[in-house]
């Protein structure tokens, strides 16, 4: 029987934290890229494309992240596509993140007055030029705070990857709990580490919100 000292518990949890961070980063990068593509598609003003994006958002915002993970992990492998827990987690978190980011960014672009599009058209700017020089510089300032705020949800979402067996912070927490029978201590520490990851992001998001609100 191996004894776990407090030092062992904490060092194991911190070791697992890097997988949580890595998974969050991968999901966030994946989610942003997909959301960028979808936002661009939505801006083309093609009603069929817009409807598809809307359906995508509705589908992934209206179903639990856990179900999406199960479908990616158990479902796809039942259909004959072998997929590891790591890739299933990244795939489902990417879908989840992008669905929310598209909706957040839509709000940000829609807050810009319609007159700006029309003025750009009058000045002879093409669609891409309008986007590059007029819309994006303003939209990014508005979008930054809620996007950073949403990254907190991504970090918290990675905790669900423990259920499909990916070894990250929560999974190591349950494993340590099974080994030490000290759930109070272990899960309090796990929660504390998540808090240490998420709270700076929350604060930064609040800071950005204030900063851009003042300058507008």
């Amino acid at each position: 029987m191996i004894q776990f000292s407090n030092y062992d518990i904490i060092s194991n949890l911190l070791f697992a934290t890097q997988w949580t961070i890595l998974l969050s980063l991968a999901a966030f990068v994946g989610g942003t890229s997909v959301a960028l593509a979808l936002t661009a598609a939505r801006l083309t003003r093609n009603s069929l494309v817009q409807k598809c994006v809307h359906l995508y958002v509705e589908l992934f915002q209206g179903t639990p992240l856990l179900m999406q993970m199960f479908l990616c992990f158990f479902g796809l492998s039942m259909l004959g596509y072998e997929i590891s827990a790591w890739s299933a987690a990244i795939l489902s978190l990417t879908l989840f993140t992008s669905a929310f980011l598209v909706e957040i960014w839509r709000g940000c672009i829609d807050t810009l007055p319609k007159g700006q599009w029309e003025a750009s058209r009058c000045l002879g700017l093409s669609f891409l030029q309008t986007l590059r020089f007029i819309i994006l510089p303003q939209a990014i300032r508005v979008a930054l705070a809620p996007t950073v705020g949403f990254s907190v949800q991504v970090v918290k979402g990675t905790a669900l990857a423990s259920i499909i067996g990916f070894v990250e912070l929560t999974k190591v927490g349950t494993m340590l709990n099974n080994a030490t029978f000290e759930p109070f201590k272990v899960f309090a520490l796990v929660a504390l580490i998540y808090f240490a990851l998420c709270y700076p992001l929350s604060l930064y998001s609040k800071h950005l919100e204030k900063k851009f609100h003042v300058s507008r």
């Binding site: 907190v152 918290k156 979402g157 990675t158 905790a159 669900l160 423990s162 259920i163 929560t170 927490g173 349950t174 709990n177 759930p183 109070f184 899960f187 309090a188 796990v190 929660a191 998540y194 808090f195 998420c198 709270y199 929350s202």
Partner: peptide, 13 residues
């Protein structure tokens, strides 16, 4: 505290 920790960890706790 609640907003910055995952629900599953709160539940397990």
């Amino acid at each position: 505290l609640i907003r910055n920790t995952p629900f599953i960890v709160q539940l397990f706790f």
